[in-house]
Design a protein around this nucleic acid. Sequence first.
DNA 1: CTGTTAGCGCGTTCAA
DNA 2: TTGAACGCGCTAACAG
Lengths: 348, 348
Amino acid sequence: MSSTEVSGAMGPSRGVTLADVARAAGVSKSTASKALSGRYDVGGGTRERVVEAATRLGFTPSAIARNLTSGRTGTVGVLTNDLEGRFVIPVLSGAEEALGAGEISVLLCDARGDAVRERRHLRTLLERRIDGLIVVGGARTDPRPSLGPDLPVPVVYAYAPSVDPGDVSVVADDVQGGTVAATHLWETGRRRIAFIGGDPTFVANAEREAGARTALAAHGLELLVDDASNGSWTERWGRLTASRLLTRYPDIDGIVAASDMLARAALDVLRDLGRTVPDDVAVVGFDNLPMIATNTRPELTSVDLGLEALGRRAAELVFSALNGGEVTPGVELRPVHLVVRDSTVRNA
Amino acid sequence: MSSTEVSGAMGPSRGVTLADVARAAGVSKSTASKALSGRYDVGGGTRERVVEAATRLGFTPSAIARNLTSGRTGTVGVLTNDLEGRFVIPVLSGAEEALGAGEISVLLCDARGDAVRERRHLRTLLERRIDGLIVVGGARTDPRPSLGPDLPVPVVYAYAPSVDPGDVSVVADDVQGGTVAATHLWETGRRRIAFIGGDPTFVANAEREAGARTALAAHGLELLVDDASNGSWTERWGRLTASRLLTRYPDIDGIVAASDMLARAALDVLRDLGRTVPDDVAVVGFDNLPMIATNTRPELTSVDLGLEALGRRAAELVFSALNGGEVTPGVELRPVHLVVRDSTVRNA
DNA sequence: CTGTTAGCGCGTTCAA
DNA sequence: TTGAACGCGCTAACAG
């Protein structure tokens, strides 16, 4: 046994290179390479010897060196603005899944809402020669600044679109969400339907409201709202708004809330008032957060934004673009769907 | 202008290499390298010309090629088992922050609880020549299987420890958490203190309970519990347990819940029963989830597990090990801290 | 079928 | 101060 061989007992060692394997198998580097990749014809016996040597030495091929020639790194950057957010995670998860299946790894960066940090992360990612980039919006889904038109890699904005229509963006269809929620209430016989909004400066808030209003208008109904110019996404605000709405319109029999937390707040207020759900009043939330929607009394019907699918789609688009496929610029609206539970239909 | 030069209007092009910059500046590659790195003496005029050329061509140095020689990639893998989990995110976030400051990037992989997928991800990460690895536990913090003793890179287990005491693990001190919670209740004058547990098969559940029990025993008190062998982390279960406890021990004046969701359930039950919080009964939760703790009525006192700090610590350990520092194997318990809100102290 | 050679992009010797 | 040459680990093109 030559002194260049590493004992198997030492376990996989970082230092083991293709040259070591080739030497141990008594062949040249290129033959070893061919034998291991299996993409070229190699003598049966030779292949066995090489594979055996590779296994014995604990050879782990370097993806870095491999991709040095091809130009591709098999790596995609994901740039986000709040990891604490409950929304970026499913997107990230979906993207990771779609890419991982194609043997592409994710380089994750969190800019924490700081533009300077974002530029720095971007530079780092480009230096690492990512093949593509997914920019996942932060807490709000309002259009965000573009990273610029001339990046050397395909970029897809997910969850929050880019302001630049020349960029590729995929976002959840909040308007459709509002429509689906209100239509569901109408279909279950509700005719006095109110909307509880969160922070009115959020585009998503306005779109969800608009979707609900449009859907009701089609049936000749008006969406009941509380005319407050402020507002937030807290349950406190939700309780306040619910109370005011129920005072002003005591005959409310349906509520669309712009988030699950607001919906939960409405449920709490209804309980305090002795109104039963869904018999007296039906409630629909938004986001379909498992932690909330399946824990309320009764469990909450909610609009699921399909964030994981959003992430998958973003990954697909990056992947497609990076393989030369044509990708249409602009904002792609992705469908949402309603998850019906007991807060609108008894024993759903 | 020579035909080899790229117009600035084309924007940064992936193809721009150091050789291009050197040619444009009329110097050799090595001189260009020195000029840009600044680590060698270069003529003042030369440096300017090189820098100008690099800027004009939109040169982005390849971190890959740079580190090809050094062996290090400036990359750390993070292997997790559930991205949807609310707990891995802060850990990941803390790690990313600690590493990002040192110009190290994070390669994220989600194994989704599948051992096979985990091995595959591990292989991919090693092929990408990560400098270190952080394994972030999944939904539960029970000890998890070791990835093995002879990986070529330093590995740190965070949140959920490795079963192998030879590995390096950092976890939150759940026992201390239970102690802190119970002690706080004692210090605010509570003497009939109950514990609401979640899924009893979770180590964390038992440890939190044990910590509370020990703390009370030191004051000659007994921890009141519901003797159920089943149990889960849902609010439904929390409401059921709270009801039973309050029926069996009507004089309860303090409750430690093993999670914020269970605590919230207790608050709901207390409200239904007309008991005021914190006057009649004080409630402490676990996890300090912002979405819950700051939204309950009243806001919830809770044990914060310091997960972000946990992630930072894990990153520090990896970083230290990879710089040749000695790292003590075993499980390192990290401190938790209590965040006091209105559910235990009025106007906290 | 196998070995030799060249080169991916960069940093870093060593000479000039 | 500058430049030529080598090597990091691997794959591809070309000979043998």
